[in-house]
């Protein structure tokens, strides 16, 4: 079965490594990812807070395109994933909004009949491909690596489609099967602040400090995440946080597909590890430079 791949805007710029590693992982597992043709921005949280109907039209255009191509959408960006799911839910329960959206889409000969599901690559990899199948293809064990599994908000909330909203374990199980050790990490679904990093900088710095500090205190060698915004927030401001809060945090933050690709035998470049701001150390690479 092939999946319709919806990278989302950030995977084209600030999270290119997420795009590279996701494609690499799917390809080497023999799962086909077909890019959704002429996809547009999902509207994100910012459009949702400006205009309701238009924001729904934005994300529904992608779903309508996917419906025409036939297949489920795979969206690695947690925010896109939540917005697409939310659109499905609203259109399903509110026929007036659905009519409004379809009336707008008709201008380009499109229509949407709620037949497309939006899925996250983590969900696809663990629940469709299966942990055993992935583990059997792993070339390098992650033995001795202490991992902090950071899920962020949007992948499990508000719906918790494939995992628990308070204590998700999908990623923990995946990396445990690959030999990694999950450290105690109670802030796994705490918010990183998202766009507050731009609008209310100080607030977001404090939220990120709590997450980074918790990972460091519990002896993690790296943080693994599923969201482009979480990754850049946690990765880019470590020096600033260390200085401001007088703590010592320096820990690489990887996309879960990057670590997965590494353990499945990709080169660091294929996993996009050269794009991480906090350099990924020898312990993670395991002498494979």
């Amino acid at each position: 079965m092939s999946y319709l791949y919806y990278p989302g805007c950030s995977l084209e710029s600030s999270a290119k490594s997420y795009d590279l590693s996701t494609r690499w992982v799917f390809q080497s597992l023999g799962e086909e990812l077909v890019e959704l043709e002429d996809w547009n921005c999902c509207g994100a949280t910012m459009y949702m807070s400006t205009k309701e109907t238009i924001s729904l039209v934005f994300s529904a255009r992608n779903l309508a395109l996917a419906e025409r191509m036939g297949g489920d959408v795979v969206a690695p960006c947690s925010s896109c994933y939540t917005i697409l799911n939310k659109t499905n839910k609203i259109l399903k329960e509110n026929f007036i909004l659905k009519a409004k959206v379809n009336q707008s889409l008709k201008r380009d000969g499109l229509s949407y009949h709620l037949k497309v599901k939006a899925r996250h690559p983590l969900d696809v990899l663990v629940n469709d491909v299966g942990i055993d199948a992935i583990a059997s293809r792993a070339r390098h064990s992650l033995e001795g690596l202490n991992i902090a599994q950071y899920y962020g908000c949007q992948i499990v909330r508000p719906e918790g489609v494939f995992d628990d909203p308070e204590n998700p374990t999908t990623m923990d199980k995946l990396f445990e099967a690959l030999g990694g050790k999950n450290v105690y990490f109670p802030v796994k679904v705490r918010c990183c602040g998202g766009m507050l990093m731009t609008t209310f900088h100080e607030v977001a710095l404090k939220l990120n400090k709590e997450i980074l500090e918790c990972a460091v205190e519990n002896g993690a060698d790296c943080i693994v995440t599923t969201c482009p915004l979480c990754q850049i927030n946690l990765d880019a401001y470590q020096k600033k946080i260390s200085k401001k809060f007088k703590v010592k945090v320096r820990i690489p933050v990887l996309f879960f597909t990057q670590l997965l690709a590494l353990s499945m035998g990709s080169t660091p470049k294929e996993a996009g590890l050269d794009q991480n701001l906090v350099p990924v150390g020898e312990k993670i690479l395991g002498g494979r430079l």
């Binding site: 600030s14 309701e52 255009r61 707008s104 201008r107 380009d108």
Partner: peptide, 28 residues
């Protein structure tokens, strides 16, 4: 690190998108 795209990515059907948005504006 190659994490900033200097130029905007665009979709192909921009004109059609504007038409859709104009209609959505009315629907709103």
């Amino acid at each position: 690190k190659g994490r900033i795209a200097p130029f905007p990515a665009r979709i192909k059907k921009r004109k059609e998108l504007s038409a859709i948005l104009a209609e959505a504006e009315v629907m709103e």
